[in-house]
Write a protein that binds this DNA or RNA. Sequence first.
DNA 1: AAGAAGATTCGCT
DNA 2: GCGAATCTTCTTA
Length: 174
Amino acid sequence: MHESRAGTTSGRIVETEAYVVGDAACHAFRGPTPRNRSLFLERGHAYVYLNYGVWYLFNVSSESHGVGAGVLIRALEPLEGIALMQVRRGTDRVRDLARGPGRLTVAMDIDRRHDGLDLCADGPLWLGRISRPAAQIAASVRIGITRDADRMLRFYERGSPFVSGPVRLGRAGA
DNA sequence: AAGAAGATTCGCT
DNA sequence: GCGAATCTTCTTA
């Protein structure tokens, strides 16, 4: 949920990827830097960074304070503020508003201002139980990475049209 | 000190 | 299907 001056937008998280301790693909793997320091905050804090110099990607820290790890939020099913998301994204296709990590931050207007925020506390940007849980969750390899590429650390709601990438990538229980 | 790669998306061929 | 956009960090000289 993001409450901004322009209006409120919210969505159901339907796709995530875990970046865990000892994971060469995790930005925190080689220790804290100015960019990734939020990954070392207590679980539930935002880590937002600029990817390829173009797109912001939104993560949630997932370990204790001082331990660097997080979860990348890759896709949302839009709930509130769909009209505002359509303006921000420049498309009317609801399915494409937040299908993909870069698109999601545009639709929700998330950027480095939100880096380090406590997403479980009062504030403009937060996580909550505002919608139903997924009926079925599938796992697959993570998308777009080269290091530690075969770990099954991508999780998504099976059958959701709001999940990014080819749906056939998913193979549960491998 | 400079160059390359990286958790992406969009537009053109 | 390929390349551009262009920031941060890592690698190598």
